[in-house]
Amino acid sequence: MIKLNRVTKMYMRNRALYDVDLELTKGKIIGIVGPNGSGKSTILKIIAGLTHPSKGNVTVNEVKVDRLIANQVSYLSELDEYYGFYNVGQTIDFFATQFQDFNKEKAEEIRKFMKLDRDSKLKHLSKGNRGRLKIVLTLSREVPVILMDEPLSGLDPMVRDSIVKGLISFIDLENQIILITTHEIKEIEMILDEVIAIKDGDIIGHHNVDDLRSEKNMGIVEWMTEIYR
């Protein structure tokens, strides 16, 4: 479903990714872990068509990725880029006008699940509720690929829990693939099918999480401690 073939990405003279090969199949939740600046976000941006590889190529569903891939990919940015003067309801409605695949009923369902008030102004939302709203907007799109850049970072445990539960409740694993970059491994470990570890722009490990447990008797944290030593 997603294929990276010998992808290298340079930012000026800095190498963000180096000669990365990766093949991912649908129906899975995949975690990308690694220190800050290791290339996690770059991988997502390249798959989303938001930045282009310096070398190599990327395909989603056999289609070469360019900016038009946005109609197959829902991307949750690390940043908050919404209109402060909109309220929650207006933001959802605005998103519905931007993406044909946006399912408004689903958005309402997730909004209620996240206990967000349609009338709250965005500039008055707490950080936690902005995090929840981002989940509403990202998961309401009916697209094969969902990319989430640090959906849990900087949020308190209750918000993180509601986001993880929201993911379990509203993703469609028959048709979708979900890629999540994160440092919050404990929270998300139980919902990952696979984990990919990145270091200095290189994939240094890629495992099925249950295989890690049964073959190496290790959870993700123990595994990372071993490979990042």
């Binding site: 129906g27 899975k28 939740i29 993880v164 539960k165 379990i168 409740s169 694993l173 139980m190 919902i191 990952l192 099918d193 249950d210």
Partner: peptide
């Protein structure tokens, strides 16, 4: 499968398995 996944906070694929 979905409800069990939510109750136990695990991946629906895991429950299926």
């Amino acid at each position: 499968v979905r409800d069990m996944a939510i109750q136990s906070n695990v991946n629906p694929n895991t429950v299926q398995r």
